[in-house]
Design a protein around this nucleic acid. Structure first.
Length: 492
RNA sequence: GGGCAUGUAGCUUAGAUGGUAGAGCAGCCGACUCUUAAUCGGCAGGUCGUUGGUUCGAUCCCAACCAUGCCCA
């Protein structure tokens, strides 16, 4: 038997007492017919209420209690919000009131009552009856400060959701954002699909995978780092417009911007280019902001962000020249660029490729300064093994990343659909892997075979849902927008 | 992986140049039939993250470890 504090023993004794009195502390025959929001919607704007015969049937958790001997106020919380109940001994009877007096904060109850306004004007429900639906054995955090310890908020998100309305609001908004995205895509005739989460060859991104093992097949499998290669196979198959909203897994560090599993919306549109996707992205983001916030301008961590179109477009090179302290002729010369990179504190190997070098410089000097939505284009071919080369300049690809508030939110490109070129790019990646780059791509022969059948000219994009939610809910950490973020093992 | 910081009751916290801790809320008992962090009286609740070390004595000093946060890689 575990040791329990006096507080917990008292609750257990109450449960025992209920059983002994023939009362089930966990009944399941109560059906609420209304929510707190129904009451508010019906009477929120009425000062005079004469509806003592209109009965609302609600259920929820007791969050607060103020007792006066033969009457009491309790605050009830359901999925829509909170409503105050006034419980009077005269009204519900001696026996029911005696039972009511044993209810604790945290218990779940069902009640019937009629709406009225208290002397201080709060819309409340005058209870005709109230009964226990669930006896809670653990005390809730303090009413005034709530739960502030971040570790407990993440580990016991259920408590966080009970007592912190802000946390609840973020996850309601997250759900709305996903629904808005889904409706937007379906509206444009995209087909929602599900592709494997377990890959024999992890592909579609530059990242280290999680490894697992299938016993019956005695085979290594990898949790996917991206769905890209499967979604493009579907475009080969003629589905032409597909999207998937689902988790990716990357075996990398954890930070305010990174969780090992995170949610992406990836989509592919045949007969489109990356430039078409810039337009689509602007429209999608403006639609979400307008529906969710009612505005295209908002604040994120003290920064004024505006989704007003058109959004700025810069090449990687232009962004470096604008935000870094380097001249074009130096940036364009590999050795001089490397010297510049080192002068600003980057620790880079002598044999680093020019494309990687440029991206290191970009991330150091420009990315975090791009606050307003900005499409960064003209990425080096070297760091974009799945993107279509630019027709005028084969050293760059037809790709953009969308940066907002200094963070990468989306990544898109016109897809490389030349199977010969794709095979060569895979081989270059395999060479990098052999040199020790754990993030380099694997060869995927089946994907090349799919391209040999013919991938229509296609553009594809991935949008980081967690980061988008952070942006629109003004959350400083990715853990604030993921219900159960990854933590180390809990120690007792 | 490195640096800095934090860890005291269910929650939010105070505290001491080292002499084994104080409060508010929650809880229990009592009073109270319109409260909004209700109010009033009383009571109870702590191996001060874990393990070692120094010391007559450690929650406090030191070390390691665990967990969390922030920054860096």
């Amino acid at each position: 038997m575990e040791e329990l504090s006096e507080l917990l023993l008292q609750r257990r004794r109450k449960v025992d007492a209920l059983w002994e009195a023939g009362i089930n502390p966990y009944p399941n025959d109560f059906r609420p017919l209304h929510t707190s929001a129904d009451i508010l919607n019906a009477y929120g704007d009425k000062q005079q209420i004469d509806a003592s015969d209109e009965i609302f049937v609600v259920a929820g958790r007791i969050l607060a209690r103020r007792s006066f001997g033969k009457a009491a106020f309790i605050q009830l919380q359901d999925r829509k919000g909170r409503v105050q109940l006034y419980v009077k001994k005269d009204e519900i009877g001696d026996e029911a009131f005696a039972a009511f007096e044993s209810f604790d904060i945290g218990d779940i109850v069902g009640a019937e009552g009629y709406p009225f306004r208290t002397k201080t004007g709060e819309l409340s429900l005058h209870a005709r009856s109230i009964r226990l639906l669930v006896k809670s054995l653990l005390p809730l955090p303090e009413k005034f400060h709530g739960l502030t310890d971040v570790e407990t908020r993440y580990r016991q998100r259920y408590v966080d959701l009970i007592v912190n309305p802000d946390a609840r609001e973020i996850f309601i908004k997250r759900s709305r954002i996903v629904n808005l995205i889904r409706a937007f895509m379906v509206n444009r005739d995209f087909l929602e699909v599900e592709t494997p989460m377990m890959h024999q060859i992890p592909g579609g991104a530059t990242a280290r995978p999680f490894v697992t093992h299938h016993n019956a097949l005695d085979m290594e499998l990898y949790l996917r780092i991206a769905p890209e290669l499967y979604l493009k196979r579907l475009v080969v198959g003629g589905l032409e417009r597909v999207f998937e909203i689902n988790r990716n897994f990357r075996n990398e560090g954890i930070s305010v911007r990174h969780n090992p599993e995170f949610t992406m919306m990836e989509f592919y549109q045949a007969y489109a280019t990356y430039e078409d996707l810039m337009d689509l992205t602007e429209e999608l983001f403006c639609h979400i902001a307008q529906e969710l916030l009612g505005a295209l301008d908002f604040t994120n961590q003290g920064l004024e962000i505006s989704f007003q179109r058109p959004w700025k477009r810069l090449t990687v090179r232009e962004a470096i020249l604008e935000y870094g302290d380097v001249e074009a002729k130096h940036l364009d010369d590999r050795d001089l660029a490397l010297a510049y990179a080192r002068s600003i504190g980057l620790d880079l190997p002598d044999d680093i490729g020019y494309g990687k070098l440029v991206m290191e410089i970009f991330e150091e000097v420009a990315e975090h300064k791009l606050i307003q939505p900005t499409f960064i284009t003209a990425y080096p071919t070297e760091v974009s093994p799945l993107s279509r080369k630019n027709d005028q300049n084969p050293d760059i690809v037809d790709r953009f990343e969308l940066i907002i508030a200094g963070r990468e939110i989306a990544n898109a490109f016109s897809e490389l659909n030349d199977p010969i070129d794709q095979k060569e790019r895979f081989l270059a990646q395999v060479a990098e892997k052999d040199k020790g780059d754990e993030e380099a791509h694997y060869m995927d022969e089946d994907y090349v075979r799919a391209l040999e059948y013919g991938l229509p000219p296609t553009a594809g994009e991935g949008i980081g849902i967690d980061r988008l939610v952070m942006l629109l809910t003004d959350s400083p950490s990715i853990r604030d927008v993921i219900l159960f973020p990854q933590l180390r093992k809990e120690t007792k």
